[in-house]
Computed example of a mutant assay.
Amino acid sequence: MEKVRKHLIFYGYVQGVGFRWKASHTARRLGISGWVRNLPDGSVEMEAEGTERDISDLIEALENHSWGSIESIDEKNIPIHGDYSFDVV
């Protein structure tokens, strides 16, 4: 399967609720590389590299997170980096 890399920004109640922990744990389980971080405006930014299906599964897991809520997601494809880990930055 071909890999893609996506730049995502999650808006809603996504900080202070374990969102980054859930993102990193799920991404590592799915074999997705990249990173996730909080932004000053209360949103969460992420770059995720993996198959379309795995990234879709990651987003679905985050949307079903019981503590927070995602109101919207900005998503765009970006060039692949070829990294091997997923970090909280």
Rank of each mutant, 00 (worst) to 15 (best):
S66N: 11
E60R: 13
D74H: 08
E52L: 07
D41I: 10
I70Y: 02
R37M: 08
I59F: 12
Q15F: 10
M1A: 06
D83I: 15
G16K: 01
E47T: 07
A61P: 04
D54R: 08
R5N: 12
F86G: 03
N38T: 13
H25Q: 13
D54I: 06
L62Y: 01
F86N: 00
K22C: 14
S69Y: 13
W35N: 00
G16N: 02
E52R: 11
F86L: 00
W35F: 15
V89I: 03
G50H: 01
T51R: 06
L8N: 11
T26G: 09
S56E: 08
R53Q: 12
I73K: 11
K6S: 07
A23N: 00
F19P: 14
E71M: 04
S43N: 04
R20D: 14
L30M: 14
D57F: 05
G68A: 11
A23R: 00
E63A: 09
R37N: 04
D41R: 09
Q15C: 13
D87P: 00
E2H: 12
H25M: 07
S33M: 01
S66V: 10
Y13V: 00
Q15T: 11
D54W: 04
V88R: 05
D54A: 13
A48W: 02
A48I: 03
L39S: 00
R20M: 11
K22F: 13
S85K: 11
V14F: 03
G16R: 00
S43C: 02
I9W: 01
I32R: 01
E52A: 08
E49A: 03
I73P: 10
R5C: 06
E60S: 12
I59E: 02
D41T: 02
H81V: 10
I73T: 10
L39F: 01
E63F: 05
H25S: 03
A61K: 12
E63T: 06
S72H: 11
F86P: 00
I70T: 09
H65V: 11
L62I: 00
E75H: 06
G34K: 08
I73V: 15
A48Q: 10
E47G: 03
G12P: 04
R53A: 10
I55L: 06
D74M: 08
V4H: 07
M1I: 09
D41C: 04
H7G: 09
W21Q: 03
H81Q: 11
P79Q: 11
T26Q: 15
Q15K: 10
E49L: 09
Y11D: 01
V17T: 12
H65T: 11
S72A: 10
E45D: 07
G12K: 00
S33F: 00
N64K: 14
Y84S: 12
R28E: 09
S72T: 14
S43K: 04
R5H: 06
E47A: 08
I59W: 04
R20N: 15
F86S: 02
V17F: 05
I9Q: 01
V17N: 05
